[in-house]
């Protein structure tokens, strides 16, 4: 039995805004085991990004407990337990691609030789070898996002937290990156928590899909989804795939995600 690495118990988070309190997360209880690929899916405002940010210690919950690797999220962040991939690539425009990938390594205080080898191997992993000296603006959106994934992987974290990493990309690039990400996951055996609002993306990538519903953000349903190793994009035409996709859509519907 794989170990539980992320554990949320009755998590609550309320933002105080000028228009009164916003209940972003309500009573979230979720266990994520090592090596799982978990997708958080739901409409805007369902708290999926907020939940990811709580795991990353970018937001503080107002109730309940969250533990990451048996520690508080803050301790886990200091222990560099995760790599975070944002919706935008968030590369620093004044750094070349290799310097961008090296940024977290500089912050960690690694020596130049280690940095160099990690930069090279991770750029290789995301098929960006040869682009080391380019500045971000010289790369396409998809390549920039791949560079930001290489940057997250360079930390060599046991888990990857990804916040709609392909949301801003066109569908062709997104398909391609989904396939690459799956291969990467199979190769590295990392735990991945992946926020998305695309049903096909969630079904294609995940081992479990957490369907969330809005106002207040809560977990509506958790759907098991293991389509087996070595799946290719073609699997999206199979009845098994369509069945799970249908189940997710029904879950979203029941959670009032399609209400106005």
């Amino acid at each position: 039995m794989p170990e539980t690495v992320i554990s949320a118990r009755n998590l609550d988070l309320t933002f105080e805004t000028n228009d009164g309190p916003v209940h972003a997360l309500k009573d979230i209880t979720l266990d994520i085991a090592e090596g799982e690929f978990i997708s958080l899916i739901g409409p805007s405002g369902c708290g999926k990004t907020t939940l990811l940010r709580v795991i990353a210690d970018l937001e503080k919950p107002t109730g309940g407990t969250m533990s990451v690797n048996g520690m508080t999220p803050g301790q886990a962040r200091l222990a560099r337990a995760y790599g975070y991939v944002f919706q935008q690539a968030a590369l620093l425009p004044w750094r070349t691609i290799e310097k961008n990938v090296g940024l977290p390594l500089e912050v960690m205080g690694l020596d130049a030789a280690t940095r160099k080898s990690r930069i090279a191997s991770n750029l290789e992993l995301v098929n960006l070898a040869g682009f080391e000296k380019k500045f971000p603006w010289q790369l396409s959106g998809g390549m920039q996002q791949r560079a930001s994934i290489a940057r997250a992987l360079a930390v060599e974290p046991a888990m990857l937290l990804m916040d709609e990493p392909f949301g801003a990309l066109d569908e062709i690039v997104r398909d391609h990156l989904n396939e690459q990400l799956l291969k990467l996951w199979a190769k590295t055996k990392k735990t991945v928590v992946f926020v998305t609002h695309s049903i096909p993306e969630a079904v294609f990538l995940s081992t479990r899909i957490v369907v969330m519903s809005p106002r207040p953000g809560r977990i509506h349903e958790i759907i098991e989804c293991d389509l087996g190793a070595d799946r290719s994009l073609d699997i999206r035409e199979t009845p098994e795939f369509l069945k799970i996709a249908h189940q997710v859509r029904e879950g979203l519907k029941a959670g009032h995600s399609y209400d106005e």
């Binding site: 990353a56 210690d57 970018l58 962040r77 200091l78 560099r80 995760y82 790599g83 975070y84 944002f86 935008q88 968030a90 620093l92 940024l103 977290p104 500089e106 912050v107 960690m108 930390v155």
Partner: peptide
């Protein structure tokens, strides 16, 4: 904010934040 969040996920110190961002 995105870049500040990024540096926070790296647990960068204030000095590193100043110098690198």
């Amino acid at each position: 904010i995105l870049h500040l969040d990024l540096m926070r996920t790296y647990s960068a110190t204030k000095l590193q934040l100043l110098w690198k961002l």
